[in-house]
């Protein structure tokens, strides 16, 4: 009997479930891509930290005092002074990163919104299930809402002049006195 009471929740659930699974998968994808991105970020940060902690100056005075060949020290110092780091145009990279971020954020927002909607539907379903009354409290109105075809059957029966339900007396007995 319970499936009559729970008819509505079941249909809602069967409607929601595939979508929920799809959402689950897409959410998992979002989470995994986010984790990959986080890992990349962590690696980059670690490498940057190790490189930044290394000294960037050369103590030429020390080499001058140690090495006999002063010319090579002079040459090295000159080379170092003349060295200019090559500049790269990183705007395209930054743009790509920005695009990636934008995409990731929009995807995450979309996923969150979808999850919110699905969660609300699931909560409504849950409330529906929880508020379902026991069989004893079932009214004719509830059954009419769940199965409108019964009313149609009754209409046809009455229009054909059939006022009795076959098998009813055998099942429920007869209260007629006469």
């Amino acid at each position: 009997m319970s499936h009559l009471l729970h008819k509505k929740p079941h249909t809602t659930l069967s409607r929601i479930l595939p979508k929920f699974i799809q959402l689950w998968v897409s959410e998992k994808k979002t989470v995994s891509s986010l984790q990959a991105f986080r890992k990349r970020h962590g690696d980059a940060q670690r490498i940057h930290g190790t490189l930044a902690s290394q000294p960037t100056t050369v103590d030429f005075a020390h080499y001058r005092s140690v090495l006999k060949n002063q010319a090579i020290v002079d040459e090295a110092e000159k080379l170092l002074k003349d060295f200019k780091p090559k500049t790269y145009d990183v705007s395209s990279h930054i743009k790509a990163i920005d695009q990636f971020e934008e995409k990731a954020v929009s995807k995450a927002e979309a996923t969150a919104a979808e999850i919110d909607v699905e969660l609300k539907a699931l909560q409504a379903t849950l409330a529906n299930i929880e508020e379902a009354r026991p069989f004893e409290d079932l009214t004719l109105e509830d059954v009419r809402k769940a199965h409108p075809q019964i009313a149609e059957t009754v209409k046809t029966m009455v229009s054909k002049g059939k006022w009795t339900v076959p098998g009813y007396k055998e099942k429920f007995g007869d209260l007629n006195i006469m």
């Binding site: 009997m1 059954v143 019964i150 009754v154 209409k155 009455v158 339900v165």
Partner: peptide, 18 residues
């Protein structure tokens, strides 16, 4: 009278389902 038919049909139907 159709109300009674309706009641009987419903009663029958939901117990058949059971």
């Amino acid at each position: 009278l159709p109300y009674f038919v309706y009641l009987f049909v419903t009663r029958f139907y939901i117990t058949v389902l059971n």
